[in-house]
């Protein structure tokens, strides 16, 4: 087991290294617009451009620049270009909003996904099942960037049921915090509700055919007890691993579009803003911390899986 964990962690470091390298290279090969020229502005002179190159180290060799940047990532010294404030500070400022959004959305999609999936499975083939299947397929087919503006337009601007975006800190006003987040939560969750309900449904249908379920039934347990105690419980394991992956992806990725559309001052909005301005330091910071989060949770999930299911462990270490 220890060997497996070590191997997995080494793999994780490798992945992060490659990710950082790719991001660094992409933003350094944007043709014809070196950052020093961009920072120097419309009135720039060659002396000014050169001076900026020296100040930021843009005149170093690429490997040297990469090393400097990575060092700054680890020491938390990344500075954004304009205004020149620490990247870490901006990220930390955005974390409460991003976590509020992701955790709230995760709770909603888990709750609705599981409830709908459970009832779909109970009545597989029935009208409710068909309806829920249709609903979940529709859910995964809606483009979020269309759903969000339409929700904002109808529910926030026309009917004024919900506030129009923004984030109110939980500590400032819990009720406002809640009402401001309802639309964004559902926007993020709607896709996963469908997905989770379908995964749970098919897992449950699998489990229902297992011998021990039949045994349980034969023992005379009530249908409800069989379902909850045996079927549901055993169907949840893959859901939990899936949830780990998805939650990581939400925190690191989904936030970008949703936060932008709803004007939530989180890490995602910061990332989007930085891409718009082509500022490498914050993009690097957000990407690496985000990737770390995803990779770390992936690794945790793998390790948990290996722990729960020895076949995985053997399968991998057999090589």
């Amino acid at each position: 087991m220890a060997r497996f964990i070590v191997r997995r962690l080494v793999g994780m470091v490798f992945v992060l290294f490659v990710v950082s390298l790719i991001v660094f290279l992409i933003f350094n090969v944007i043709p014809n617009s070196p950052p020093a020229q961009r920072l120097a502005g419309k009135n720039a002179t060659p002396v000014l451009v050169k001076s900026i190159e020296e100040e930021w180290g843009f005149d170093d060799s690429l490997p040297q620049q990469y090393l400097t940047m990575m060092k700054k990532v680890f020491t938390g010294e990344l500075i954004q270009y304009s205004p020149r404030v620490p990247v870490d500070e901006r990220i930390v400022e955005g974390i409460p909003a991003t976590l509020s959004l992701s955790i709230g959305a995760a709770i909603i999609w888990l709750f609705f996904g599981l409830v709908l999936g459970y009832y779909s499975a109970l009545r597989a083939g029935g009208k409710l099942d068909k309806f829920l299947t249709g609903l979940s397929i529709a859910g995964i087919s809606i483009p979020v960037f269309l759903l969000a503006p339409v929700l904002i337009y109808f529910l926030a601007e026309k009917l004024k049921i919900f506030p129009n975006g923004f984030y109110v800190p939980l500590t400032e006003d819990p009720w406002e915090w809640f009402t401001h987040l309802v639309l964004p939560w559902f926007t993020v969750a709607i896709l996963s509700i469908g997905f989770y309900s379908r995964v749970l449904r098919s897992n449950m249908l699998d489990v229902m055919n297992e011998d021990y379920v039949r045994t349980a039934r034969a023992k005379g347990l009530s249908e409800r007890q069989v379902m909850l105690r045996h079927v549901l419980r055993n169907s949840l394991i893959p859901i939990i691993t899936l949830f780990g992956l998805d939650f990581g992806a939400t925190v690191a990725g989904t936030a970008i579009i949703t936060e932008t559309l709803f004007n939530i001052e989180g890490v995602g909005l910061y990332a989007a803003e930085s891409i718009a301005k082509l500022e490498l330091p914050p993009i690097m910071g957000v990407t690496l911390y985000g990737a770390f989060f995803v990779v770390f949770i992936n690794a945790l999930v793998d390790i948990a899986y290996a722990y729960l299911d020895p076949r995985v462990r053997l399968g991998t270490s057999a090589q």
Binding site: G11, F14, V15, L16, V18, V19, I22, V23, I26, F27, V29, I30, P31, N32, S33, A252, G253, I256, I257, A271, I275, L278, I283, V286, T287, G290, A291, V294, V295, N298
Partner: peptide
């Protein structure tokens, strides 16, 4: 192959796609 897929999996897709789009827009 698994690690390569991991790399792809962990890159923020949108961010990357946009960055690539920007880079390619000029040249």
């Amino acid at each position: 192959i698994a690690r390569t897929l991991d790399v792809l999996w962990s890159l923020p897709v949108l961010l990357f796609g946009i960055a690539l789009g920007v880079s390619l827009a000029v040249g």
